[in-house]
Design a binder for these strands. Structure first.
Lengths: 248, 248
DNA sequence: TGGAGAATTTGACCTGGATCATTGTTGATG
DNA sequence: CATCAACAATGATCCAGGTCAAATTCTCCA
């Protein structure tokens, strides 16, 4: 059995996130093969960039702890937030086609990352059928989730957007065996607004409104969901079976 | 050399779209292997559905001719258009993860389709390295394009959305060796509005406005782009290098 | 521990695009 | 080729959420 060479380094096999991350549905032996090509650098500090637009694409990245914001800068210099990545989630998938990063990624807090060279993913996934299957699924899931966001941005009101956003985070924390009703938002209000296509002020106002109607308790970045039913109701104006599919 | 068994059936090798479609960057022999597992049914009539939400996922589909609209119905019964697919483009990618279709697809006009069972894609892509690479790229491109749409929906004004939409179609027609300045919109105004997060009326108004300012000539579904510069300018509030990457 | 700058909240006001209503157009079908 | 239903255009009105301004609260160093 493979051991970590350094007792502070966690192997894929030992990692609590392996069911969410690359090694999903691999055998222990296969997991060790993946493990061999995973690089674990020192953690990123808050605000530090993992990669930026235009940079050559070589690797995919998995978040081990912390949180990452993916974004784009348009030619007016405005930022557009594309997504947030939590532990076990994988970044860089949008660059496989162009071989250049088409977005930037920055740590929202101290964040540990696993890096895996894409050419090694390609090699391994020719050999390990389960890895290929899993890669297809990861990519497909990303597409599905992006489409859900499109529905949100195309149709929903400010309150529905915030509701969907919070429900989405809640479900993701739940998958990670964290509280689904009390958590800390790793991103600023500006980022939330930007991501959801709303002004910061609107985000603030919706938060206070939801707080007044006893749906939430908000204290800075700490959020407690008091009425998950209501939140789920305003969130689920999208296709219901998508929702149930993403609940484990 | 492989021949079509029926002279009316076009093999991948003969297909003018093969550079855009599954067989991209395959050798002729590899192309024939793909060809063997491609099913070519009879064309869909306008309005006919290729698959619907909830249906079991078995295959990916490539458009051979015509056009397909992908959409979702939310629980209020409202439609949300997710995308439009032109010849050479591939549908069904969003269902790989869940193994159920999470959207529906319907022909906007008489449309010929190639079907390829996903399990056969998986098998073949273990054997044919180029096919695996290409599948990763197709999936990645879809993610990138969805993210571009997110930027559009999150930030842009009505005019910018229509401009981006038309430029995007223009580039796609160009790739297919069709005119990039004169083409027929296969979809209704309602679909355009729905896709772009705008009311139909707004789509109409922007069309007439752009017509008055000599940027377009619109006649029903026929569009002529008169001032491609202007269109490209209002469209490109997104990251410029994405644009250049998608131009061949 | 203080204090500067950033982030957040709140209020007042305004506008782009939604909605509603009506009319004109088109194209499919008997 | 007349008819009807879906589609498209245009005008009038309205409002959700944007923008601007200002007050308040965090946060993180020195």
């Amino acid at each position: 059995m493979k051991e970590a060479s350094n007792k502070f380094v966690v192997t894929c096999r030992q990692c609590s996130l392996n069911a969410l991350c690359f090694p999903y549905s691999l055998t222990f032996d296969e997991m060790d093969e993946v493990d061999d090509v995973v690089k674990r650098g020192k953690p990123l500090q808050r605000g530090q960039e993992l990669f930026t637009t235009g940079q050559e694409f070589t690797s995919l990245y998995a978040v081990r702890s912390g949180a990452i914001k993916a974004y784009n800068i348009d030619e007016n210099g405005d930022e557009q937030v594309i997504g947030f990545f939590l532990p076990g989630e994988i970044l860089g998938l949008d660059a496989i086609d162009t071989q250049k990063h088409v977005s930037s990624a920055k740590a929202l807090e101290t964040t540990a990352i696993c890096e895996i060279t894409f050419s090694q993913v390609q090699e391994l996934s020719l050999k390990i059928r389960n890895l290929q299957t899993h890669m297809y699924r990861i990519l497909s899931r990303e597409i599905r989730e992006d489409q859900e966001l499109q529905m949100l941005l195309g149709k929903k009101t400010a309150e529905e957007r915030i509701g969907s956003f919070l429900m989405n985070l809640s479900l993701r924390y739940e998958q990670r065996s964290l509280s689904s009703t009390r958590f800390r938002l790793p991103m600023a209000r500006t980022d939330i607004g930007n991501y959801l296509g709303l002004a910061v002020e609107t985000v603030s106002r919706v938060f206070t409104r939801l707080q007044n109607s006893k749906v939430l308790r908000v204290e800075g970045k700490e959020v407690e969901i008091l009425d998950r039913n209501y939140l789920s109701k305003i969130a689920n104006n999208d296709c219901p079976n998508i929702q149930s599919a993403s609940v484990k």
